[in-house]
Simulated scan of single mutants.
Amino acid sequence: MSKKLFLITEFYDSSQNTTGYLFGKLHEFLSKQKDIDLTLLTKKDEKVLNQPEALYVKGVTFDKKSLVSRSSYELFIGFSFFKNCAQYIKKDDIVFTGTTPILLLIIIHILKKIIGFKWVLLVHDVFPENLVAAKIIKQDNVGYKLLKRVFDSVYASANDIIVIGRDMKDLVYNKTNHNKITVIPSWIDEKDITLQAKNNNSILTELGWQDEQKVVFQFFGNLGRVQGISSLMKAIKLMKRAEDAQFIFIGDGVYVDELKSLISESNNKNIIYYGSVSQENKSIGLNACDISIVTLADGMLGLGVPSKAYYSMAADKLIFTIMDKNSETYQMVEENNIGWVVETSNIEEIAEMLDKAVSDIQTQKYNSPRKTLINKFSSEVAMNKILNIIRTL
């Protein structure tokens, strides 16, 4: 008899965002397993193709820049998921969730005690510790201490925990003292990202940035509070070889207005904010560079692993990593010789490493990021690890 599995996620399609891509791939893989009776429970999105067998909760729009608007959304979507979970999930079923929406975790935690199902938790964000890193709340705040106490218990109640980095495993273990934590990096299918020569890229053609003598650095993805973009901008000002480098920012997020101001103040025509690109044009966006910049601000150790690193590896782009030396991405780039690494705390060192990258890319030998992805971080390997965890339950 097939085991009943509920895949519960806010996003489920690659056209929505990275979470949608990852869960969409996971849904596609799990639906092919004959020993699993899979049900997708997700938020309805009129802009993407609906899964006919799925269960949907109603979605609402909100202002990402407003904490009040976002909090109201979390309450609404959390209640919607609660009704469906309570109605359809039965004893001994298996539930697989991510860490958003955040109230979903409390809901699953409570219903698990009442109903008696098994829970696999995929951790992309560690809450509420990520609020401190984003400077939304202070660590000594009473509200934070209460949230941490609650969510430490919530995370610990999962039967199995999957994390996306070694540094995150250490943090989650300290948070939960859980003995079943597995590291499985984000699963990117390299076939979804096509390779493209620099002189054939439409974005670089539009900008007139096809000079092979200049090195194009790119920041691609979410422009948020925890990306450490201000440190990067300060470092660019200190570069000795700035005239040989160009910087393009592609994406969206709460930090966009601040980024535009920093670019304007720099008075450097070789730094631009391009805007965002559609999911359909992701390959074009990822190929609009020689080097991909992947950053995390100070205080983010263990709290996140930027999926953009794996997307850029699929595009066969070398990675320039700015983050704590104990972080997953820093170690991955260094261990596999696929780019440059520097810590976030020293602006002068970041500038020196940017200059070094400009020189090294013409003279030094690096491994292929795409081949590294295929050999060590393929979606097939990740999916089978997840399947094994589910089957043990």
Rank of each mutant, 00 (worst) to 15 (best):
S2R: 05
L5M: 10
I8P: 06
N17Q: 08
T18F: 10
G20E: 08
K25S: 14
L26W: 02
H27E: 07
H27L: 08
F29W: 04
S31D: 10
Q33G: 09
I36M: 03
K44C: 03
D45S: 10
E46I: 13
L49A: 14
Y56M: 10
F62Y: 05
F62R: 00
F62P: 01
F62A: 02
D63M: 06
S66T: 05
L67E: 12
R70E: 14
S71L: 13
Y73W: 15
Y73H: 14
I77K: 03
G78K: 05
F82Q: 07
K83F: 15
K90E: 12
T97N: 07
G98Y: 07
G98N: 07
T99N: 07
P101D: 07
L105S: 03
L105I: 04
K113Y: 11
I115K: 02
F117R: 02
L121E: 10
L121C: 08
V123L: 05
F127L: 06
N130F: 12
K135W: 07
I136N: 07
I137Y: 09
G143W: 12
G143Y: 14
L146H: 07
R149I: 12
F151Q: 05
V163R: 02
M168D: 11
M168E: 05
K175D: 08
K175G: 09
K175H: 06
N177K: 11
E190K: 01
D192T: 06
L195I: 14
N200S: 13
N200G: 05
N200P: 06
S202G: 13
E206V: 09
D211H: 02
V215A: 11
V216E: 01
N222G: 08
K234E: 00
R241H: 15
Y255W: 08
L259M: 09
K260D: 05
N267Q: 13
N268H: 02
Y273P: 05
Y274A: 07
S276Q: 14
S278F: 13
K282T: 13
I284R: 00
N287T: 00
A288L: 10
S292M: 03
V294P: 00
L296C: 03
M300H: 04
K308G: 11
Y310W: 01
Y310Q: 00
Y311T: 11
I319T: 04
F320V: 06
T321L: 06
D324V: 10
K325W: 11
N336P: 14
V342N: 15
E348Q: 12
E352Y: 14
L354E: 04
Y366G: 06
S368H: 04
P369Y: 00
K371Q: 10
L373Y: 02
E380R: 05
N388H: 10
I389D: 06
T392C: 08
L393Y: 13
